[in-house]
């Protein structure tokens, strides 16, 4: 479970004040709101990529506010996937495990398992550079899931994809949600994404957050 208590975040002239919300374990939350309303800023704060002015973030009963991103065990997928382009797909997926000093065979085993889950086994030896948008996002998802995170944070992961690829990704994300015991926080502009994926929607409006059922949007 994620708890955000009295979050105050300042970024230049932009301020978010006293935000409070909870994400229950296993929830699929979609953060929505107009461009510039601060939803990505909140997502990055949960991941530890942005400092809070004040407030607390708790993950599964443990305060993580001052923890560096590496110690939060949160998977993160940015909008463009941000794959490591000098590496192969397999190296991208196994990167976090190599950092954790897993053995070579265990890394290979986990990489294969994730590649099967995300239907990207045929890409493993390819360089990350030159993949299509949908392929990139699947690889980025596999990489973010590699170290068994408790939470997956997705920052507009589908916004740059064409309609067909989006449909495939909806199915994939639903499959992940059902098969893995993982909490997902997903930033999006799209009502369709919220309706298809979310168990709850948090709508950012004029500096505050309103909780909605996806069908109420």
């Amino acid at each position: 479970m994620i708890e955000c208590l009295d979050l105050n975040i300042t970024q230049g002239d932009f301020n978010l004040t006293n935000l409070n919300f909870k994400v229950e374990k296993g929830d699929y939350i979609v953060l929505m709101g107009k461009t510039g309303c601060g939803k990505t800023t909140v997502l990055e704060s949960i991941c530890g990529l942005r400092k809070l002015k004040s407030g607390e973030i708790w993950l599964n009963g443990k305060e993580i506010t001052s923890l560096v991103p590496a110690l939060r065990e949160i998977g993160y997928v940015p909008q463009d996937g941000a794959l490591f382009e000098t590496m192969t797909v397999a190296q991208n997926i196994g990167f976090a495990l190599k950092i954790r000093k897993w053995g070579k065979s265990k890394i290979e085993e986990r990489t294969k398992e994730l590649a099967d889950l995300l239907h990207i086994s045929y890409l493993l030896e390819r360089k990350a550079q030159g993949l299509s948008g949908g392929e990139k996002q699947r690889v980025a998802l596999a990489r973010a899931l590699s170290f068994y995170p408790d939470v997956l944070c997705l920052d507009e992961p589908l916004s740059a994809l064409d309609e067909d690829t989006k449909e495939q990704m909806y199915d994939l994300l639903i499959e992940l949600k059902e098969n893995l015991d993982i909490t997902i926080v997903h930033v999006s502009h799209s009502k369709m994404e919220a309706v298809k994926l979310a168990s709850r929607v948090l709508l950012f409006k004029e500096g505050s957050i309103k909780e909605l059922n996806p069908l109420e949007i």
Binding site: E44, G48, L49, P69, A70, A82, E85, I99, S146
Partner: peptide, 17 residues
């Protein structure tokens, strides 16, 4: 793009790594 370094941090890297 510094996004890749940020992702690396969430994957377990420190700044040096």
């Amino acid at each position: 793009n510094n996004r890749q370094e940020q992702v690396a941090l969430t994957l377990g890297c420190n700044q040096r790594q």
